[in-house]
Every structure is written in C-alpha cells, then in structure tokens.
Amino acid sequence: MAITAFGAGGGPAAAVDAAPKRRSWVALFLLLPGILYLVLFFIVPLVSLIITSLETQSPDGAFAYGFQWQNYVDSVGTFGTQIWRSFFFAILATVIALLFSYPLAYFIGVKARRWPLLQSFMLILVVAPFFISFLLRTLAWKTILSDDGPVVSALKGLSLLGPQAHITGEPIAVVFGLTYNFIPFMCLPIYTTLERLDIRYLEASSDLYAGGWATFRKVTIPLSLPGIVSGTLLTFIPAAGDYVNASQDFLGGTSSTMIGNVIQSNFLVQENYPVAAALSIVLMFVILVVVSVYVKRSGTDDLL
C-alpha cells in the first residue's frame, strides 16, 4: 500500500493529470451564479442603454433604432456645464469627507483601542444616520439651512451673510449635502484598515528617528491606503451621479444642477430617452477613466 502510493502506478498518475481540469470545472461551476447575475443585471441593461442612446426620433415623436451618434455630441454640448460641475462637486465632497473622516477613523481605530466601549459607541454614532432614510435626513438639512432656519438667521445676525443671501439652492449646500451623506462610506473603510494597523510599525518608525508627522506620512498613510482608496471610491462614484442632494426639492437650485438631475429629468420628465441614455453612458465612462487612473496612481491595483 505504502509502496504503491509512491510508485509510478498508472492510477495515481492519471488522477494527478486530471486534477487541474477538474478544478477548472469546479471554478466555472462556482462562478456560474456570478456570471448569470452579471449578464442579467449588468450586461443586458448596459446593452439596452447603449441601444437607446443611439436611437433616432422621428418627427411624430416616436423613437426608432438607429446609429444617431449625434445624440452624444448634442447631450455633451448642451450639458457640458453640468458634467463638469458634477465631477467638481464630487471631488470637492470626496476631499472634504476624507479630511473629516480620516482623523475620526484614526481616533476610533487607533486612539480608542484602549477603551473598547468608547470605540463601539463612536462606531455606532458613525453608522447611526443609516437608521433614518437618506431622503429624510437631506430634507431635514434643507429645513435647517433654509432661509428662515437657524443657520441662515445666525449667519445674518453675525453679518457673515448678506441680507439677500441663501444657503439652500447654492453650490455650497449641495457640496455640504454630498459630503454629509457620504461620510460614513468614507469613514468605515478607513476605520477598518486603521483598526488593524499594527502599532509596532509606528514604534519601529519612531525608533528610526521619524517624528510624529514623518511616521504619519511614511507609515500610517501607506498602511491605511487601501481604506483610503476604497473610501474615496465609495464616496466619489455615487456622489458624481447623485441626483438627490442637487435636486431643487432638496438642497439644490438652478445654479447647482448636477448631471444626475439632468438624466433624471430627461428620462422621467421630458421623456427624451436617447439623451438621458447618452448622458448616462458618458457619466459611466468618465467615472471609469477617473477611477482607473486614480487606482493605478495610488498603487493599489490589487484592490480591483
């Protein structure tokens, strides 16, 4: 028995040869639900969206299949400002959310390790907004920031705001809303990496003549980079396409419309499907390019 196990018998050798093949079948089988899911919920809608974006409109208003590339040129030409504004707002909100979230996540994940109770309490506070609907919270901010709300009255009282000025409807309110709504998405991934940060690396750095700032720059930041990258992506991607904060029913106004609002109104109000579809694809494409450049530059490609 023991001898045949090591011998070059036909049986075992054949089994060894068959193993990789069998494994690839198993892998395929395991991937099957994922592939089905992708085809059903991503590929099919994407193809349908592309087809819609190329449709032509006949004079009587009906849409027909076609290769109307002009749709792209028209929509980008008409809504260029909104596209730029969307990315500008999204980047601004991502940066502000990062500046706010990193110290918070650092405190919860590193400094508060000695007090587990405080740590859990603060984590709950970060997650707590999720218990209330996103729409309700944004509406609440609309009330707080409204012209007769406490913030505007206080700022006017302090003469920091002119008598005719508003906050709601202005870009500042939209960026504020985006930042506020996405802070948990920024904070949690950063917290997860910082929570696992081994203090011994910081000690080693300190032992090797690095002061607090140098240690932060050379050790803490690089070791928490995966969290920063996933946090910024989780903030930037949805923020760029967001249509709630910039909606005029919420914090936005005519001067702060984002591409999400344009798509929404073209799809649902004006029923101009090709333009809405073309804008969606442009948005997706730009996000893809921005994200891949960003991920490549930050050296965390293995994250994708």
């Binding site: 011994r200 690396y201 000690e203 080693a204 750095s205 032992d207 090797l208 050790v219 690089p222 980079l225």
Partner: peptide, 15 residues
Amino acid sequence: PVNTVFQSYALFPHM
C-alpha cells in the same frame, strides 16, 4: 540616540 532590533522584527510591510 538608540536603535532597536525588535523581537517581532516590525519590518514595514509596504516598503
């Protein structure tokens, strides 16, 4: 003016 060879090495994993 002190350096340490740590028992757990503590080599920076990202470098």
